[in-house]
Nucleic acid binder design. Structure first.
Lengths: 162, 162
DNA sequence: TGAACTTAGTTGAAGCCTAAACTATTCCGG
DNA sequence: CCGGAATAGTTTAGGCTTCAACTAAGTTCA
């Protein structure tokens, strides 16, 4: 079967996307690190934990929600525990299970970092695109995620309420 | 100044984007590795070199075009050289300069990998998105890249010809 | 009950990336 | 021409990620 190459428009879209994403993720990570000593992956975990009932989640739930491997979550949570951002709590109902639980310190760290992070996201992405382009972005990446990981959508991506 | 938080639509867009991007980049990288033993960053470098005059670029040109640090390019090109994909050639006009030059092996490797990679990009992104959404994607990330790295746009992103 | 299988999570080694310091060369002003 | 500043690229160490192998606990089914 001959390759169905990308046409010029598609190639432009693809390259713009990788280049923009490389710059964007690097910037957000750097801003968080410099101002609050958090990496972007750590920040994302803090957010998920802060939104969870009792501020805790099973390791696998974290892994699923941020789309990282379990191994990676183990390592990252271990670092966060060393930094006092989370506790690890044995799950009583499942002897294999472990909860990562947001500490007060961790919560405060998130509260401190959030305004700065939101400002970065706005400055670099949200505020430089039109409303309808943002809507297109949502559709595009919802479709992408659904194609690559069907049936595991973030609740916020389907419900309108926070 | 009170934080200008993201509204629900903006939050949906942002989360869809990170989650989708995490899955997408991971998938493309994995596909390339498994089928052709290349990482996505390596593949991108091969593409840039293959398009360059005489199939060679200065280290800094590579770094700029893929938006990676020079240090990272040094490391990545060193690995690629070990793998026989590129040569390193001392620049005659500037004693400090080094060219990375695509070898025949490297070019063949790219030719072999390209159809597979394009198929992955199509399956995961291009073919799951409408034409106008793709155009929006281009606009969004061109704006993002321009905001974060003004004045260093990829030629393909401004010219219509390949 | 118990053997096989699955799931949750961890571990350790190897590879990749970052940051900062470093070498070598070129550029610029006097 | 010289000295200082800037540029090109490399190096090294340390941190992060991946991979494969591993432990431990739960599940299934005869």
């Amino acid at each position: 079967m001959p390759t169905n190459w990308l046409d010029v428009e598609q190639q432009r879209a693809w390259r713009a996307y990788i280049v923009g994403t490389t710059l964007l993720l690097e910037r957000l990570d750097r801003d968080l690190r410099e101002s609050h000593g958090l990496s972007l992956p750590e920040y994302e975990i803090l957010v998920r934990l802060s939104e969870a009932p009792e501020r805790r989640l099973r390791m696998a739930e974290i892994a699923d929600s941020v789309k990282n491997s379990r191994s990676r979550i183990t390592h990252t949570v271990a670092r966060m525990e060393r930094a006092g951002l989370v506790d690890r709590v044995q799950c009583t109902s499942d002897g294999r299970g472990v909860y990562a639980h947001l500490t007060d310190t961790g919560h405060q760290r998130l509260v401190d970092a959030a305004p700065c992070h939101v400002a970065s996201v706005r400055a670099a992405l949200i505020d430089v695109v039109a409303k309808d382009e943002l809507a297109a972005l949502t559709r595009v990446f919802t479709a992408v995620a659904d194609g690559l990981s069907p049936g595991t959508r973030d609740p916020i991506l389907t419900a309108v309420s926070s």
